[in-house]
Every structure is written in structure tokens, then in C-alpha cells.
Amino acid sequence: MEELKREIISVLNLEEMTPADIDDDAPLFGQGLGLDSIDALELIVLMEKKYGIRLASASEGKDIFKSIRTMAEYVSKNRKK
């Protein structure tokens, strides 16, 4: 999860944040980190480039991108890189 947090901070240019600032179970969108649809696209690109994971649909992304924990669990089960 720590690695994933660092990647997200880098990709989304959240320079003011550290991995410790991001709660593993906080929502990534809306409350929590407050990410938007552009950020979602960046996360999709990150998943493809860094981990070799292609998402099948936008609805799949909603489930995966709920929190750092849900992303990390999905990556650990499905990573190809």
C-alpha cells in the first residue's frame, strides 16, 4: 500500500501530501482525497503502465478505486508486472 500511495502522489502531483497523510480506507473520490474524473483517468493509466492491469469497464474502476486498500488488493491479485 505504501508503494501505491507514493505512485498516486507522484502521478497526481500531490506534492503537499505524504503516504502517511492518506488513510488506507478513506474514499479516493468525493470525501477523503477528493479526486475527480481526470484523476480517475490518471489512475487507470498508472494501473496499465506500472502494473500491466487493464480495466474492463468504468464500473469495475468504481469498485477498485474506492480506497487505497481496495486498489492495493486488486493490484496484488491481478498485477502482470
Score class of each variant (00 low, 15 high):
N13P: 01
F29I: 12
V75E: 04
K62I: 13
G52K: 09
I22D: 00
R54N: 13
I38Y: 09
V75C: 04
D63M: 13
M17H: 11
K5F: 00
K50Q: 12
S67P: 01
E3P: 05
S76V: 06
G32M: 09
E42K: 08
K66Y: 05
D36Y: 06
K81F: 15
P27F: 04
S37K: 11
F65D: 02
K80W: 10
D25V: 11
K62R: 11
L33P: 03
S59F: 03
S57I: 12
E2S: 06
K5D: 07
A40T: 05
T70K: 07
K5P: 08
V11E: 07
E73P: 08
G34R: 06
L12T: 06
F29E: 07
E15R: 11
D39L: 07
A40W: 01
D24G: 02
R6F: 09
L41G: 13
K66G: 04
S57L: 08
S57T: 14
D24P: 04
N13L: 12
A26H: 03
E48M: 15
E60A: 14
K62D: 13
I22T: 00
D21K: 08
E16V: 12
K81T: 15
L46N: 05
D23A: 15
I8E: 00
N13D: 06
E48S: 14
I44V: 14
I22N: 00
K77F: 05
S57M: 03
Q31G: 09
E3R: 04
M1Q: 09
L41H: 15
R6E: 13
R54F: 11
Y74C: 01
L43Q: 01
M17V: 12
K50H: 05
E60M: 06
T70S: 05
P27G: 11
M71P: 01
E15I: 10
D21I: 03
S67K: 01
I68D: 00
G52R: 06
A20M: 06
I44K: 08
K5T: 05
E42L: 12
R69M: 15
R79H: 05
A26V: 08
I8A: 02
E7K: 09
E3C: 05
L28I: 10
D36S: 07
S10A: 09
L14T: 02
E42M: 13
Y51H: 07
D63T: 15
I38A: 10
S37E: 08
K77Q: 10
E3M: 08
G61K: 03
T70F: 00
K80T: 15
M17I: 10
E15G: 14
K66N: 09
S76A: 14
I44R: 07
V45P: 04
V45R: 14
G61E: 02
I22L: 09
Y51E: 03
S37C: 10
L28V: 04
D36W: 14
K77P: 01
E60D: 04
A56E: 12
K50P: 02
R69T: 11
M1F: 07
S76E: 15
K77S: 12
L41W: 15
R79I: 07
K62H: 15
A26T: 09
V45M: 13
L28M: 10
E7R: 05
G61N: 04
K81H: 14
I8Y: 01
L33S: 09
I53N: 01
K66E: 04
E48R: 06
D24R: 06
N13E: 07
K66R: 10
N78H: 13
